[in-house]
Design a protein around this nucleic acid. Structure first.
Length: 424
RNA sequence: GGGCAGGUUCCAGAGUGGCCAAAUGGGACGGGCUGUAAACCCGUUGCGGAAACGCUUCGGAGGUUCGAAUCCUUCCCUGCCCA
């Protein structure tokens, strides 16, 4: 890898704030600097928003630096108030531990923990055994309540209420940094921009206690062009766990992105060379869909593997190929053929299809509609399709006759949500 | 611990005994236009039912009443002021 990874991070849009740009650049231009990012175990799976720190870690690791992923088994016990308008629900220890393990496994896919280039640690290991009074005297005395209260992160919470437990979060995170500095000579902590205050608290603490200069870097908090939080859809989070959010849905999440986000996303969520990114984002009009497909394929490949990415692409081609005017190239023709079997599929007993199934029931059963009521509403509005034919009545039963030569039939709710049904 | 103000449907926020499944706005969803985009226009937005209608919901639990989101009791939670 030529050039300085810091520059690459910056070009790709990963840098929001840095403590000392020159120092960070020097550090990352050298070799094998240890850096860390924390992931709190607030859920059993990470979501697309976490891909920002993950991808940044991947870049640094590839450049030969040492990645430390901190699973926040200890900090999650307390709950970070940053960027929240109200207190998090406190989770019990067993839940946190289980979720932390799940997150660890997910992170391993991207970072391949080998104990050298990438390691994973759990801050519960050093936070849980802490002695309260000792901690207050050794660490607590370095923190100024005045300064903490003045921080932007707490301002909103001072209006809405902030409990003492949350107020301690920053101390724990700072202590994490100190611990990692001592143990691994970790000299860079990265995190979301809402973590800036917490990270700087660690930088300060290390300077006061150890007299050493360490650095901080934050990533921009991504929102989509339409203002939604990165990795959230109206239906819920875009989980990285294939069991919660399948590769096909994951692929579609990226294809569905706003035109204005394509370049940004290609830079951050794929490893494509920047020249290629620039070429793709310069496409105009409907050609930009090609860039979205590349984005979706590359991003899916990183999270779910090349095989699943390919299957997702085939499935998308099958579901949307017909509707898209084929551009003429041989490759586009082949893609348009698609492969329906890779679509999310549900098997329904043959006998039920013989009897005929009411559409509202079937659509709801496979999860395309949240309730029969909603399904009926959509039928009234012309939003449900069987084999690309609009369902114009709730009386229109779905039967064996709807099965195609491949033994399946295609249900669509709206233009984008697709599900395949087979007899079985 | 004392005083005050609150907890409403995805969110914000009306409602203060029947006309309330609950105004309005946002969001979301469907349709139209498109490029699986944005913007815009139209429609929908608790569940079940073809419908009539029924059922569940306004912090929790009880109660008053023919009838409660609305009144009473009690509990839980939140904010503000005082300690």
């Amino acid at each position: 890898m030529d050039g300085n990874v810091y520059d690459e991070l910056k070009e790709r849009g990963f840098v929001a704030q840095v403590s000392d740009e020159g120092a960070v650049r020097r550090m990352l231009g050298g070799n094998a600097a240890a850096f860390y990012v924390g992931f709190d175990s607030t859920a059993a799976s990470l979501h697309a928003g976490s891909l920002v720190p993950i991808m940044a870690m991947v870049h640094l690791r590839r450049a030969g630096h040492r990645a430390i992923a901190v699973v926040g088994g200890g900090t999650t016990m307390v709950g970070d108030p940053s960027g929240r308008t109200e207190m998090r629900r406190l989770l019990d220890e067993a839940t946190i531990r289980a979720q932390g393990q799940a997150i660890h496994i997910q992170l391993a896919r991207y970072l391949r923990f080998d104990g050298v280039g990438a390691i994973a640690v759990d801050n519960a290991d050093w936070l849980l055994p802490l002695k309260y009074v000792e901690f207050l005297r050794d660490i607590g005395r370095h923190f100024s309540v005045n300064r903490m209260l003045a921080a932007e992160a707490y301002r909103l919470r001072l209006e809405k209420g902030l409990s003492f437990i949350e107020f301690n979060y920053q101390l724990l995170q700072a202590y994490d940094y100190l611990t990692l500095f001592r143990k691994y000579n970790c000299t860079l902590q990265m995190g979301g921009d809402d973590q800036w205050g917490n990270i700087l608290a660690g930088v300060d603490l290390i300077r006061r206690v150890e007299g050493a200069a360490v650095e901080a870097l934050t990533f921009p908090l991504l929102t989509t062009a339409s203002g939604a939080k990165m990795g959230k859809t109206a239906q819920g989070a875009v989980w990285l766990d294939a069991g919660r959010f399948g590769p096909y849905e994951f692929y579609q999440y990226w294809v569905d992105c706003d035109d204005r986000d394509v370049g940004r996303f290609l830079r951050m969520f794929t490893l494509l060379p920047l020249d290629e990114v620039r070429r793709l984002e310069s496409l105009r009009g409907s050609e930009l869909n090609e860039a979205k497909r590349v984005l979706a394929f590359e991003a899916t490949k990183i999270t779910h593997g090349e095989l699943e990415a390919e299957r997702a692409r085939q499935a998308a081609a099958a579901a949307f190929g017909k509707a898209v005017p084929v551009s003429g190239s041989a490759e586009a023709e082949a893609e348009a053929a698609g492969d329906v079997t890779a679509l999310p599929t549900t098997a329904v007993p043959r006998s039920r299809l013989e009897a005929g199934i009411a559409p509202a029931g079937l659509f709801t059963e496979v999860g395309l509609t949240p309730s029969r009521k909603e399904a009926k509403r959509m039928i009234e509005q012309g939003g449900l399709y069987v084999n690309d034919e609009r369902v114009d009545s709730t009386e229109r039963l779905i039967t064996l006759e709807d099965l195609g030569p491949d033994g399946g039939l295609l249900l669509k709710a709206g233009k984008k949500k697709v599900h395949r049904v087979v007899a079985g």
